[in-house]
Amino acid sequence: MREQLEQSRLRLYRVAYSWCSDRALSDDLVQETLSKALKSASQLRDPDRFNSWLFSIMANCWRDHFRNHQEMDDIDELEDYRCVHEVTPEDEHAQTQIVQRVRAAVGNLPVGQRQVLTLVDLEDFSYAEVASILGIPAGTVMSRLCRARQALKGMLLEFAPRQTAQVTRIRRVK
């Protein structure tokens, strides 16, 4: 179990970072998740559900984090939470990059939408698994995902206005 948990560290960190956009907080979140998972390992009855069990622990840790902050009353109602973090020259350099723009757009999503989006997109969880991890109905997963992608599209279109010229040489096959 310990080894399996350690192997999940990168994936947990990736999702944690997409949730909070803060390296130190992501690190704390992952550490806390791994620690809690180790303590409650006996509660995992179905090994096939390891991933969703682990991410549900992290979702709870993330929820606890908000509860410990007075200004964050209800995770589902939060519209904009941006963790305060130091800005290094490295960060400033990265700000100009497209990756950072996408991260900023994801970071501007309401927390509930952000969680659903990243669990689906980064971890390939099914809608049912995400519902289980976050403890919400599957219909809510779907509606949050829709709203998240609509918002993301709006934010990223600002960075990338449509081109009027016909593009013929690069295409995508569906």
């Binding site: 990736r14 990756v99 996408v102 991260r103 990243t118 980064l122 992608r149 990223l156």
Partner: peptide, 11 residues
């Protein structure tokens, strides 16, 4: 959009 998110948080 999905691929943009995936690329923004590399594996």
């Amino acid at each position: 959009l999905k691929e943009m998110v995936q690329h923004a948080y590399p594996q």
